[in-house]
Amino acid sequence: MNDTTDQGARGPLSGLRIVEFAGIGPAPFAGLALADFGAEVTVVERPGGETRLGGGAALNRGKTVVQADLKSPAGLARVRELVAGADALIEGFRPGVMERLGLGPDTLLAAHPKLVYARLTGWGQDGPLAQRAGHDINYVALSGLMPFAARPGQPPALPATLLGDIGGGALTMLFGLMCALWESRRSGRGQVVDAAIVDGVGYMGTLIQALRAGGRWDDDPTRNLFLHRSHFYDCFECADGRWLSLGAIEAPFQQALMERLDLAQGASAAARPEDDCAQWPILRDAVAARIRQEPLAHWVAVFEGSDACVAPVLTAAEAPLHPHHQARRNFFMQDGIAWPMPAPKLLRTPARPGAAARASDIREELSGPDDIRPDVTRGD
């Protein structure tokens, strides 16, 4: 693992100045990504805000943290000074909070026309749900994509925060922010980026919608290779209770899979496996029984060097030790914890994670009581 957090070399976003209003979940992650790639990110925290769920020190790596009372004239004046020197602003409050503080986009863009004002919420700045509470699971549910993760007879299950908060939220907002900054170089004008998690998740579903439009996606799980009914696209339990993932969609990969499982004689003869769904139940039982005969380490060795599209299901503690992650330096050590390296990798100006934020690093200025809440449309 990479054991350094050196910031000696500037990243590709060097010179970009961001003011982030402290929040929870996806907005702090977006600021973290910008800081990792070299932007100068200043976080405006309320006193004591570092203890909140889904934000705080762990996501303030490489940022400058200041504390300010956003309800005091002095605090607001200082924040406006910070924004006046920034290229962009990030906020994740519920709709209307920034306007009530006198920090809404109309006010700030009037004084700073080139400012890019990025807003991240669960449901967006308008619409009938804009003021409703919600969480990652709710936004994904409304997108129409959750059934694509369903298993027979079970409710859909999703990895926490990854699809909604980070994919549909933080990463979508980051892309919008970069688009607006690029456009401002030509027009000399800033604009508002309205990033709603529910919108972003829906957009991420474009590939599936394209498959549906082309007749390549069947809503019937008995005929849909992605919906955990086939023998070649699912996770199967090994003898030691560990799990092996199979993703052999194309016919050559499926053939390689069945050969290494010593089940080639029972493999489908169809040119493409999705055309042979009638055989799936029998073949699935055979594959499941075969994989249960040996521990995970055995199957890892069996499929070494194979194009059968097989990978072990690793724990969070195991992943940093995997040879592939180590070869690509996909994790780095900080305070005794293995953290994921920023992605993607830029070969000439790579990201360099900054030092972890600590209480002693916070600049106390204009602090005072502050009951500004993070975006309650997210329920956090």
Rank of each mutant, 00 (worst) to 15 (best):
M204G: 09
G134M: 07
V83A: 01
V140W: 09
P155Q: 10
V198I: 12
L108F: 03
L366Y: 13
F226C: 04
I249K: 07
G247E: 09
V193W: 00
I282S: 15
V41D: 04
P47D: 03
P252Q: 09
A180P: 02
H322N: 10
Q334M: 10
G241W: 13
P12W: 08
M333G: 04
V287Q: 00
Q67G: 13
G188W: 06
I24D: 00
D136C: 09
D165N: 12
L53F: 14
D126S: 11
G144Y: 03
R189F: 07
G124F: 07
P26C: 04
F29N: 06
T4I: 09
C238T: 15
A270L: 13
T64N: 04
F253S: 07
G241V: 15
G124A: 12
N224V: 01
G48I: 02
G190M: 02
R100Q: 14
A301S: 14
Q255G: 14
A170Y: 07
P353I: 01
Q293V: 08
A9G: 13
G214C: 08
R328Y: 14
D234F: 10
A343V: 13
R119F: 05
E250W: 10
I282F: 12
M258L: 10
D335H: 12
L13R: 00
L108Y: 06
N138K: 12
V376L: 06
I337F: 13
R352D: 01
N138Q: 09
S14V: 15
I166N: 03
A30Q: 08
A357N: 06
A133T: 10
G48F: 13
G56T: 10
A180S: 11
A160D: 14
S143Q: 11
A338W: 05
A22E: 00
W217T: 01
E45W: 08
A58H: 12
K71T: 14
L76I: 00
T51S: 08
G75F: 10
G167D: 11
A160S: 14
A149Q: 02
E183G: 01
A77M: 09
M341I: 11
W243P: 07
A111V: 12
A288V: 14
Q191F: 06
L129S: 06
H322G: 05
T377K: 00
R229F: 08
A256D: 11
D199S: 10
M204H: 15
P47F: 10
A84W: 03
R186E: 00
A270R: 05
L181C: 03
A77P: 11
Q255I: 08
A251G: 12
V287R: 02
V201D: 04
P73V: 00
A74Y: 06
L13V: 07
P273H: 08
A141D: 02
R10C: 10
F175W: 13
V302H: 08
R52I: 15
G23K: 03
L347P: 13
A195E: 00
P147W: 04
A297Y: 12
F93P: 02
Q125S: 05
M178I: 11
L296C: 05
A68M: 03
